[in-house]
Design a protein around this nucleic acid. Structure first.
Lengths: 95, 95
DNA sequence: GGGTTACTTTCCATGATGGAAAGTATGGTC
DNA sequence: GACCATACTTTCCATCATGGAAAGTAACCC
C-alpha cells in the first residue's frame, strides 16, 4: 500500500501545501482566509510544516503593513509530490 | 475549497474504501492483512463506515471457515466519488 | 457440549486538532 | 523616542481520533 505522509495528509495542511505548490509564495492572511481557520491554528500548522523543513516563512513590509509570506521548500515540494503520487495510486481505481 | 469527508479521509479508511471500490466485496481478513492493522482497529473502522451507511458486511461460511465479507454500498460509493473529486481538485495543481 | 475461530467490544493510553486568550515583536505615528 | 496597533506566536485547555491489548461473543466443526 502506498505511504501517506501524515504531516501532509491532514486536511488543513494538505490545503496549505497544495495552495503553496501553485504559487511562489502566499501571505499568511491569505492562507488563513482560504482555510477559514483561526490565527493560532494556521500558525501551528505552518510551524509544524516548517519544523519538517517543508515550508519557509519570510517576514517583510508591504504597503505599510507587516506581512508574513510562506513558501514551499524544495524538500516540501518533494514530499508533496510523493504524497500526491501515493494518493493517486489509491484513488486512481475510483471511477 | 473542496470539502473532504473526514470519515473517508483518514488513511486507514481511505485505504479500505478505495480497496473496496475496485472489487465487489472483500474479506475482513484480506483487508486486515492489506492494511496491516489489528483485528480491533479494522473492526472499528468498518463499523464506523457501516454506521454511516458507506459499507455493508455479510457473514457466511467458505470452505469450512466463517468469513465476513465487506462491500461498499451505493451511498459509500457516492461519498467516495465526491471525496475523490475533492482530492483531485486539490492535488491536480501539483506537478 | 466443547474447543476453536473470527471477529467485536471494552479499556486505556497517546497524540492530534481546534479556539481563546495571553504574549511578543515591530512598523507607523506623533 | 514613546506608544499604539497590528500580525502573528505561544500557552492553555477541552475534545476527539486512533491504536493495541484483552476480554467478550457467537457460530461452526467435531
Amino acid at each position: 500500500m502506498p505511504e501517506l505522509d501524515p504531516l501532509i495528509h491532514a486536511p488543513a495542511r494538505l490545503q496549505v501545501v497544495t495552495t503553496l505548490s501553485a504559487v511562489s509564495e502566499a501571505e499568511f492572511a491569505t492562507l488563513r482566509a482560504a482555510l477559514e481557520v483561526s490565527d493560532s491554528v494556521l500558525s501551528k500548522h505552518i510551524s509544524a510544516l516548517a519544523d519538517a523543513g517543508y515550508v519557509r516563512s519570510r517576514k517583510g513590509v508591504q504597503a505599510g503593513r507587516r506581512t508574513t509570506w510562506i513558501a514551499l521548500t524544495s524538500t516540501g515540494r518533494k514530499a508533496l509530490r510523493e504524497h500526491v503520487a501515493a494518493l493517486r495510486q489509491l484513488i486512481d481505481v475510483v471511477d
